[in-house]
Amino acid sequence: MAANSVTATPRIDLYSDTVTRPTPGMRKAIAEAEVGNEQAREDPTVNRLCEMVAELLGKEAAIFLPSGTMCNEIAYRVWVDHGEEIVLEENSHALHYETGGPAALSGAMCRTIRGKRGMFTGTELEAVIRVPHGWHGQRQRLVSIENTANLGGGAIWPLEQIEDVAAVARKHGLKLHLDGARLLNAVVASGIPASAYAASADSAWIDLSKGLGCPVGGVLAGSRDFIEQAWRFKHQFGGAMRQAGIIAAAGVYALENHVERMAEDHANARLLAEGLAGIKGIGINPNEIDTNMVYFTVGGTGLTEQEFARRLLADHGVRIGPQGKDLMRAVTHLDVSRADIEEAIRACAAVVKG
């Protein structure tokens, strides 16, 4: 996402769901965590978290990692060799916001699909499958999907569409990777279990530091063999940790206490979208709010996205992220209440009114 140049401290922070702070209950769990040597696989809290996520996603094993980006990049490194190709949607997070990680860390090429709201179909995947040309042809290895789709406005992949894409991938001998940074938002909004979404994927992960409200971390899951390979690259990429149970405890707490409450974030996002839709000059379709993300344009207000963001924060203490080309992104989370959303709507209206 575009960097926010506004530096004032916000009262209501809708910049991202990564700005959440640990709740009192989570802080207590962190303080009381039982710990050990994580890299030697001796930390009981880390091991418990990995078991929980493996079960949640219906996989044999899992590995705790410092970030969601590392989850993606380790999966790519396992599945793809140098010079080989990953197929993904043209607005994928891994393509735009992981500092060229696929190329830098795996030597991978990326072939993109122009989908709809960050998603694509099996037919669209079929259209970019390369015809083999002996030693001269580009070798494709992996299809990567993102659920929910960030730049698709937090869109939820229909389960049957994932299965369709997976069937085409298998037909051509390709692996399927699921970037599940906000997968649990999809689960709460749709009622479909995480294991169902991940069933067709050879690797999948969830982020702990977004809607779940943890300070750090992600958990990558797959077959036991896949996870054994992931351990090697975890160390190689600098992800080795020691008494990591301190931060893993936050993940355990969040999975036990913070999943169902995401429905509040989704309701707040819809409320925000409906309020913004009533402000002249702001462009938004409230019907496209699936989860906790609200994208809207401000070109019709006569302000640039940077100026809109600056005034909103400086004059009203509300932070919403400018995305470029008149586009703004607001993300609801556990530190934002319904009253905060109502105030944010009033603040946006005041900025437009000038």
Results as ranks from 00 to 15, higher is better:
residue 46 V to Y: 11
residue 215 P to W: 13
residue 87 V to H: 03
residue 296 F to W: 10
residue 8 A to N: 13
residue 116 K to A: 10
residue 42 E to W: 02
residue 256 E to P: 00
residue 290 D to P: 00
residue 67 S to I: 08
residue 199 A to N: 03
residue 171 K to S: 06
residue 147 N to T: 09
residue 310 R to F: 05
residue 316 H to V: 09
residue 130 R to K: 13
residue 269 A to Y: 03
residue 133 H to T: 14
residue 286 P to T: 14
residue 323 Q to H: 11
residue 182 R to T: 10
residue 294 V to S: 06
residue 78 V to D: 01
residue 346 R to G: 15
residue 354 G to L: 06
residue 323 Q to A: 12
residue 327 L to T: 12
residue 272 L to C: 05
residue 264 E to W: 04
residue 104 A to Q: 11
residue 81 D to Y: 05
residue 254 A to D: 02
residue 306 Q to Y: 13
residue 298 V to M: 09
residue 28 K to N: 10
residue 251 G to M: 07
residue 134 G to Q: 08
residue 70 M to W: 08
residue 12 I to F: 10
residue 332 T to G: 06
residue 319 R to V: 01
residue 125 L to Q: 08
residue 49 L to R: 07
residue 249 A to W: 07
residue 73 E to C: 04
residue 18 T to A: 14
residue 19 V to F: 12
residue 32 E to Q: 13
residue 187 V to I: 03
residue 184 L to N: 01
residue 104 A to T: 08
residue 190 S to W: 02
residue 146 E to R: 03
residue 340 D to Y: 06
residue 42 E to Y: 02
residue 286 P to K: 14
residue 151 L to R: 11
residue 16 S to I: 09
residue 200 S to E: 14
residue 115 G to E: 08
residue 347 A to S: 13
residue 54 A to I: 06
residue 1 M to H: 10
residue 252 V to F: 01
residue 293 M to G: 00
residue 323 Q to K: 13
residue 300 G to C: 04
residue 187 V to P: 01
residue 122 G to C: 10
residue 182 R to K: 11
residue 301 T to W: 05
residue 349 A to R: 15
residue 137 G to N: 12
residue 247 I to Y: 14
residue 38 E to Y: 07
residue 213 G to V: 09
residue 310 R to Q: 13
residue 91 N to S: 13
residue 52 M to R: 14
residue 183 L to D: 02
residue 116 K to P: 00
residue 21 R to Q: 15
residue 57 L to Q: 11
residue 321 G to I: 12
residue 210 K to I: 09
residue 187 V to Y: 02
residue 162 I to Y: 02
residue 294 V to P: 03
residue 159 L to I: 08
residue 41 R to K: 10
residue 278 G to V: 12
residue 337 S to T: 15
residue 27 R to E: 11
residue 276 L to C: 09
residue 341 I to R: 12
residue 228 E to A: 11
residue 197 Y to H: 04
residue 143 V to K: 02
residue 78 V to F: 01
residue 209 S to G: 03
residue 236 Q to M: 12
residue 172 H to L: 04
residue 38 E to W: 09
residue 317 G to F: 15
residue 251 G to T: 03
residue 262 M to V: 03
residue 239 G to F: 12
residue 241 M to K: 13
residue 331 V to P: 00
residue 160 E to L: 06
residue 275 G to V: 11
residue 344 A to T: 14
residue 329 R to I: 15
residue 17 D to I: 04
residue 177 H to I: 01
residue 344 A to V: 09
residue 90 E to D: 15
residue 285 N to P: 00
residue 99 T to M: 14
residue 34 E to M: 03
residue 25 G to S: 09
residue 133 H to N: 12
residue 207 D to E: 12
residue 100 G to Q: 08
residue 35 V to Q: 05
residue 86 I to E: 04
residue 11 R to H: 08
residue 173 G to R: 09
residue 119 M to R: 15
residue 320 I to S: 08
residue 40 A to R: 12
residue 310 R to S: 10
residue 94 A to I: 05
residue 332 T to P: 03
residue 313 L to A: 15
